[in-house]
Design a protein around this nucleic acid. Structure first.
Lengths: 150, 150
DNA sequence: CTGTATTCATTCGCTTGTGAAGCAAATTAC
DNA sequence: GTAATTTGCTTCACAAGCGAATGAATACAG
């Protein structure tokens, strides 16, 4: 196996740095255009594909823990973007649904993301963008698998 | 120009999700092994290459704003990892230096990152890892350039 | 020179996330 | 059928980052 190159050792360093910078920009951009932040945008995006899912599943989907989701959905319910409905047979479960306003906001956000993401990938080839997406989806999985065999 | 593929539109969504998950893991991992969090690890990493730099430059380097750096350096000074020294001719400026303990902690962190990053890139080829690093260094730059011509 | 603008760092008030603990509903074990 | 565990969500206390405002020191314009 090849020796890790110095730059590779700083992968997470660059990842973390890029995230704080990009997240600020994304929040600003979304806030200017659609009046919400990136966490709420994540919820809208996820619910667009999984409307009516439970709160825990939502947390899993957007990478936040349960207390964070509770707060996030409180604010979004307050803002009229989503509503909690009872989960049917299971009395503990609550499902989250987009309201009409939520669906319409989601369309705005899709457009914002389209522009923003296009800007992010300037200077990258399609192959490189694919590699980035592969990393972003694979790495969290890799970690959870390797937790045990430290 | 090619039409953006649906998956590409969610680039930032995946980026944000991956970051929260990875950051939690990284904090846990670093905390277990070296007793510090990822923000402090970033400072140690950056200072390893730019020991004695000013607080603003440090913030730029690790992607945090000035108030965040002030707090971070307060905690690290408290912990004996860094010290503030006066910036010479310019009476406003303060420089940050690693203490002996800081240098030694930095070595630990280097090793932690080596292991952690190796884990992150499992399943990726070297070419793909390179693409990820290119993205992480390029995207923040791209944004700041494009701020004006919204 | 002197007044204005700029820069570097800090303080302040607030938001959002975290882990730990708690509660109620459902499931499993015996 | 009851006790013990697990699951889904919420509450709580706290950590850390953000923007805005502030305080000091320097630079610049006339």
């Amino acid at each position: 196996m090849a020796i890790a190159r110095p730059i590779d050792r700083r992968l997470f360093f660059w990842f973390d740095r890029a995230h704080t910078i990009l997240a600020k920009e994304a929040d600003q951009f979304l806030s200017d255009n659609s009046g919400i932040g990136s966490s709420q945008a994540s919820v809208l995006t996820y619910l667009g594909f999984h409307d009516g899912c439970g709160l825990s599943e939502l947390g899993e989907g957007i990478g936040r823990n349960n207390p964070a989701v509770t707060g996030l959905i409180n604010r979004m319910e307050q803002a009229g973007l989503v509503k909690r409905v009872h989960g049917g047979l299971d009395g503990r479960r609550k499902r989250v649904q987009l309201t009409d306003e939520g669906w319409s906001k989601r369309e705005q956000v899709r457009e914002d993301y389209r522009i923003f993401n296009e800007r992010l990938t300037r200077g990258l080839t399609q192959t490189e963008t694919d590699a980035v997406l592969k990393f972003l989806t694979l790495a969290p999985e890799n970690l959870s698998k390797n937790l045990s065999k430290k």
